[in-house]
Amino acid sequence: MRRQLACLAAFAIGVGAYPASANPFSDFAAFPSFYTDATMKTMKPMAGFKNAWFALSKHDRVKMTKACNDPAMSKPHAQFCAKVLALGGAD
């Protein structure tokens, strides 16, 4: 019985920790608002990008700024991160 409980507890911790370590670029609902097209190939000009940035919650801006400061996470999204970092992660 203890073994089953220990396994269940380990599973619950693992499932609970997953969202905290998730890639913000893959599960970020507002990400498409920074692009002019549905394929997310063409970024909005800085004015439109800035409007979309400030439409996000402070929590989401902090999360994206942290991701853009991580070289491994930002490399595939270099153009997006360049604009985020140009805004200085402004609040």
Rank of each mutant, 00 (worst) to 15 (best):
C7L: 15
C7W: 15
C7H: 14
L8R: 11
L8G: 11
A9S: 12
A9G: 09
A9Y: 09
A10V: 08
F11H: 03
F11S: 08
A12E: 08
A12S: 13
A12F: 11
A12P: 07
I13S: 13
I13C: 15
G14E: 03
G14W: 07
G14Q: 04
V15A: 02
V15Y: 01
V15E: 00
V15R: 01
G16D: 04
A17E: 00
A17T: 01
A17H: 01
Y18F: 14
Y18L: 15
Y18G: 00
P19K: 10
A20E: 07
A20D: 07
S21T: 15
S21C: 14
S21F: 15
A22R: 03
A22L: 04
P24M: 03
P24T: 01
F25W: 10
F25M: 06
S26Y: 06
S26E: 14
D27S: 12
D27K: 09
A29N: 10
A29Y: 10
A29R: 14
A30L: 12
A30R: 13
A30W: 09
A30S: 13
F31Y: 15
F31M: 15
F31T: 13
F31D: 11
P32M: 11
P32G: 09
S33R: 14
S33F: 12
S33N: 14
S33Q: 14
F34K: 02
Y35P: 08
Y35K: 10
Y35A: 04
Y35R: 09
T36V: 13
T36F: 09
D37C: 06
D37P: 02
D37M: 09
A38R: 12
T39Y: 13
T39W: 12
M40T: 11
M40P: 05
M40G: 06
K41R: 14
T42H: 06
T42G: 01
T42R: 06
M43H: 02
M43G: 02
M43T: 05
K44E: 03
K44R: 15
K44I: 05
K44V: 03
K44M: 05
P45V: 10
M46S: 14
A47F: 07
F49D: 10
K50H: 08
K50G: 05
N51C: 10
A52D: 09
A52R: 01
A52C: 07
A52T: 07
W53H: 07
W53F: 11
W53P: 08
F54I: 01
F54T: 01
A55C: 01
A55V: 03
A55T: 04
L56Y: 05
S57F: 02
K58H: 10
H59V: 14
H59C: 06
H59A: 15
H59R: 15
D60R: 04
D60T: 07
D60L: 03
R61Q: 07
R61N: 01
R61F: 03
V62M: 06
M64D: 00
M64F: 01
M64G: 00
T65Y: 14
T65Q: 11
T65D: 07
K66Q: 10
A67F: 10
A67H: 07
A67C: 10
C68Y: 00
C68M: 06
C68V: 00
N69L: 08
N69G: 03
D70G: 03
D70M: 05
D70K: 09
P71H: 00
A72L: 10
A72S: 11
A72F: 07
M73Y: 13
M73W: 13
